[in-house]
Design a protein around this nucleic acid. Structure first.
Lengths: 245, 245
DNA sequence: CGTTATCTTGACCGTCGTCAAACAGGGTGG
DNA sequence: CCACCCTGTTTGACGACGGTCAAGATAACG
């Protein structure tokens, strides 16, 4: 069907960024069976402790991963933009170790677990692409740890804004241009281990310093180089210009 | 040679924990060529920004991963125990995004990059084992983020001690039994985003609460259940009892 | 046995958390 | 079209967890 041909385009592009995929590999990926699910914001895609029978790929909208302490404090451990596969964790491991939720209203392609396993089994290039993607996710987690552990509120909020902006680049959003940051201040706080109150003060401070301008949740950077320095942001950990191997 | 037969035993056991390896897979892993390197503590195995031509496996001793902010603050983002492969990141990605150092004096098997790539290419089970191991490392990173972001000093130090104890289990160190925690208090602080001074106070407080006893760096838990609760430690994220698939 | 790294302790300070109230702003329904 | 409400954001006063600085005590190591 016509829909299917375009729905997974972004996924193919995303996986093809860092691994060599043949035309056949791409065709096989595009031919994966799936169900398109449309959700509102804050919809659970996976719950911690659940086994998962399917593999989700974000088609439109945004999603995030969270963990909760026993006391109920929330920590967001990662965010996802359209085109990104969300569920390799649960595909190859038995039980989910964290929650996966939509951030905004979103469209998610749900691919049967076995179909993805099969394509990974039969197509070494695809399996390799999955491994590379997983390694890069790992790198992003490590930077996230650094951000939470060793940067003060101003720098870590700035860093989060930078990471999001740069990751949106692959979707064609030019760095520095105004973009809509799809999080509430409470969610920003949960990314960084801060309270919503302090996030508010920090965003305000960043604006006062001239590092960002905001109208509602539209963020833009008057000067990307200046912003980069303030956030001590170095995109190396995203491995964007990695050679394909 | 006799040494080779035993040196990589731990690696084979580690990879075999979560993936089905045939006798041939095991034999191929054990037959990997390597150079054994003996180092003191604080020896760099990989430096951020470097391309890496080899793949390190920890044979004896401990190692850790770190990232630095531009201002020089250090964040430790992971620790490793004997038997663990250290270098899949650098094996399949172009440049290292973080530093890798020995924590104690250690023995490291250095396997040529191409040998590991070859075995992964030719043996799907091994490639799959590598993926699973990478996914579990990802899960540990996520828990680390939670620990740094949303637990106070007492809970996060306790959690770190718990994680280490449980991971040592696979090496035959019984949980709760006294073990030697191979970090200085400064390094513990760098794991958790704390200062060494506060780590000292926190360890003291944990001991005062009867959660731990220590003589030098020997740690033991008078009551594992009580410790578990204080740290709100749930080993699920380590995926230890995962089915092999 | 001396020298250096590590740990401890105390006094003081600052970033960020807490509590609470006021203030948008954007849906929804009358 | 306006009233209403609910979620998010802002602001202020105050408190606390953890940082900083500095000195002294221990322990590791040659």
């Amino acid at each position: 069907m016509a829909i299917a041909e375009h729905t997974l385009d972004l996924l193919v592009r995303r996986l093809g960024l860092h691994a060599r995929l043949t035309a056949e590999d791409r065709a096989a990926l595009l031919a994966l069976p799936f169900v398109l699910r449309t959700t509102g914001p804050s919809a659970y895609l996976v719950r911690e402790g659940q086994p998962s029978e399917s593999c989700a790929v974000l088609v439109a909208g945004f999603a995030y991963r969270q963990k909760l302490t026993e006391q109920g404090a929330r920590q967001i451990v990662g965010i996802h933009i359209p085109g990104e596969p969300l569920d390799f964790q649960n595909l190859f491991l038995d039980v989910a170790d964290h929650d996966l939720l939509t951030l905004t209203k979103a469209q998610v392609a749900i691919i049967p677990r076995e179909a993805v396993r099969a394509i990974a089994r039969e197509r070494p290039n695809v399996a390799h692409a999955i491994l590379i993607y997983t390694l890069i996710e790992g790198s992003i987690f490590r930077e996230w740890i650094l951000n939470v552990g060793r940067r003060d509120a101003k720098a870590s909020v700035a860093h989060l804004l930078c990471e999001f902006a740069i990751r949106m680049d692959v979707l064609g959003v030019k760095t520095g241009a105004p973009y809509d940051f799809p999080m509430t201040q409470e969610q920003i706080g949960d990314c960084l281990g801060l309270t919503p109150v302090h996030v508010s003060r920090t965003l305000r401070a960043l604006a006062a310093d001239g590092l960002i301008t905001r109208v509602r949740r539209q963020i833009s950077f008057p000067s990307w180089p200046v912003m980069r320095r303030a956030a001590s942001f170095d995109a190396g950990y995203l491995h964007l210009s990695e050679q394909r191997s």
